[in-house]
Design a protein around this nucleic acid. Structure first.
Lengths: 229, 229
DNA sequence: CCTCTTAGTGTTAAGTATACACTAAGAGGG
DNA sequence: CCCTCTTAGTGTATACTTAACACTAAGAGG
């Protein structure tokens, strides 16, 4: 029975690509490494999987420890296991990506005495390990996913205007959308709750605020409604 | 430096969901377990990741060792890491799915003195560990993927009729398709090469044979052609 | 009250998806 | 050889979806 377990084991880590919307940019949270290898380089937040926690829990814990973030949208991306992706020894990493409301979670800067910073997604320096590759994959996944699942809301304040929502899609997809068509489509999905409030502190006509209705969304999904943008 | 590596490590395995088309059924290859736990139960082929091979290589090796299959379509699916998914100890598994041409790879039966068998995808017994869950996820992924990427060809003989191709889609998607619309669409994608051959040994008018043109496909992809069915 | 900025709103045309039925070819049996 | 059986192969009309497009309304600020 134990004979099946004689192999030397790869180390197992999780790494998180954390996206935040800081108009007019989509940003990614990076941590500066304090140890070799790649000391001083920027890298994705992450760390070792403990033997008594699930992968999802590891990712949540690392996110909390390294960035102070909690209760954010988090989804597994892909597992990277090339033999020499870490120069020290064999390390397999399960990559996640997270979406955070910068409006809620006030800028996470240097939690835990660590150097952390947000970078524009098109403006990221060369990262440690194979983290560039992971980041690119996460960005592509986000672009794909946002087109047929309404996860974009996770990046906006809970109450938002249609303009904000459209901007969000434009930023993520990196192309402009037609205002009237966008509104028609998104309202037609029937998952936005129109509030009796308008935005404040704007120097022009104030736009109506909306809220994403999660429950309604789940009903719509059951009915097979299409959420493609 | 080594202090970061003090954790007890989860064991790391790969498991493969191997699909084959055996008209009129989509089948999955399973292995009967010879050891505890779940001795005698059916399970996905798989095994431990060696410290000197990539995850993809592990999956390929396991496939070869356990089923004799080589050079098949293989793609990573998801990584499963619940704490108690294996009753012995902590095991994290990277799941893959594979598509094989049963026409090429003659039935794999009991390679390596192991009991292996193909099961209809809707007719699979309760599996060992969390393998039911993995199998379901793989099936869903296949259904999704086949709708916008022409991976179905990996399950057919290299030369096939349009009818075979349509049947394949019908089997995977579990719904019937309109013959004329299907032909229009699939030929319109311009990735099928019409051969000067027809099928043989049929008791009715013989259909023309086609071949998937990989190179042409890659060109079409660059041009942003849509492969949705 | 004038200016500036963004909110909010419908219609038309083009393109795409769907529904649908008959003739052609070839095999096989009498 | 001819009749039957089975599947191959083909086009059109309609419904639906997407894309393009511009003006009036509201409110803030000077």
């Amino acid at each position: 029975m134990t004979s099946t377990y004689e192999f030397p084991r790869p180390a197992l880590t999780v790494d998180c690509v954390v996206f935040g919307l800081d108009e007019p940019d989509l940003k990614v949270l990076l941590i500066r490494r304090e140890l070799e290898p790649y000391r001083g380089k920027w890298a994705l937040p992450g760390g070792f999987v403990h033997v008594d926690e699930s992968l999802d829990d590891s990712a949540k814990r690392e996110l909390r420890e390294e960035t102070g973030l909690e209760k954010v949208f988090l989804e597994q991306l892909y597992t990277y296991g090339d033999v020499d992706r870490d120069p020290r020894e064999r390390v397999v990493t399960v990559a996640y990506y997270a979406l955070v409301r910068l409006s809620d979670h006030r800028v996470v800067a240097a939690t835990d005495a660590r150097d952390a910073a947000w970078f524009g997604v098109h403006d990221v320096p060369r990262l440690a390990f194979d983290h560039d590759r992971i980041l690119n994959a996460a960005y592509q996944r986000l672009q794909n996913k946002v087109r047929y699942e309404p996860i974009g809301f996770e990046l906006l304040p809970r109450k938002f205007t249609l303009r904000q929502l459209q901007r969000l899609y434009e930023i993520i997809l990196d192309r402009s959308l037609d205002k009237r068509n966008f509104r028609k489509k998104i309202l037609g999905m029937d998952v936005l709750e129109e509030l009796d409030e308008v935005e404040t502190d704007v120097a022009h006509r104030a736009a109506r605020l909306y809220r994403f209705n999660q429950k309604r969304y789940r009903e719509m999904v059951k009915q097979g409604v299409n959420f493609e943008i």
